[in-house]
């Protein structure tokens, strides 16, 4: 039911897009159409361009995103658990959170060069703050009763964080992880478009230079599919680690 309803919007959108090529007011070489995009598919895949540039992007994404998740959760939990640390760091974290991290790309390139390390760094910076912010908020809103039950049985601070605070804040943390993944994807593509030797962003620039709207849509759709896969994988992980969210809160 849900799937069928959802498919309708995608279907109607594709249809209108296709109709434009046959009847429409817009120039098909500029807006392409599903038919033209499908036509470009063998070329983009066949030239091996996607398989040549894709792995570089995936590598930078994974290498930056994984540590961002770990660091974001840990710092968010530790800072959020202590009122004093929250007062101390919240303004700084907030400042980084609202600053578009892609604005740091030029600086990172000056520091780390145009190679993969600056892209990993931008992915890390893009993802870490959403994860951190959501962990922080999640930890601050953990039910006091859970904390009290830990405290009453003599939990140390690290035990409380590991066994009560992080699991208790997990749904909020995972929302941050999903958000961070989206930001990381933006970060890596923009960084590759800005200046790069390889990657999907680089490929986008190549097709831009030859005004290949149809091929660009193939690349964009590939990124979309990759993003969707990533999000659904994260949702699966979430269900795995917190099955209790499926039911009532407690």
């Amino acid at each position: 039911m849900r799937l069928r309803t959802g498919a309708t919007s995608v279907g109607v959108f594709s249809l209108l897009w296709q109709l434009n090529e046959w009847l429409g007011p817009l120039d098909p070489t500029l807006v392409a159409s599903p038919r033209l995009v499908l036509g470009a598919l063998p070329e983009v895949l066949g030239d091996g361009l996607l398989s040549q540039h894709g792995p570089a992007t995936v590598y930078a994404l994974v290498a930056g995103f994984m540590p961002a998740v770990a660091v974001g959760i840990l710092i968010g939990a530790v800072v959020g658990y202590s009122r004093r640390l929250t007062y101390l760091f919240e303004p700084l974290i907030m400042a980084f959170y609202v600053t578009p991290r892609i604005a740091f790309i030029p600086i990172l390139i000056m520091w780390l060069g145009i190679g993969v390390s600056s892209r990993v760094a931008i992915v890390f910076l893009s993802a870490v703050f959403p994860v951190l912010m959501n962990s922080l908020t999640g930890v601050q809103t953990v039910d006091r009763l859970w904390l009290r039950s830990g405290a009453a049985f003599g939990a140390t601070r690290m035990q409380a964080i590991r066994l009560v605070v992080i699991p208790g804040a997990l749904s909020s943390i995972m929302a941050g992880v999903r958000l961070g993944f989206g930001r990381a994807l933006i970060g890596v593509i923009v960084a590759e478009m800005y200046v790069s030797t390889a990657g999907i962003g680089k490929l986008i620039r190549l097709y831009q230079n030859s005004v290949r709207v149809d091929a660009l849509f193939v690349v964009i759709t590939a990124v979309t599919i990759f993003g969707l896969l990533g999000i659904s994988l994260l949702r699966r992980v979430e269900r795995r680690v917190s099955p209790w969210q499926e039911g009532m809160r407690w």
Binding site: G168, L170, P243
Partner: peptide
């Protein structure tokens, strides 16, 4: 300070819902 040797049972149970 708190110790399991003086164990509390809470009115609101205070179980951890994910466990």
């Amino acid at each position: 300070g708190p110790s399991p040797s003086r164990a509390l049972v809470f009115q609101e149970f205070a179980l951890l819902p994910w466990r």
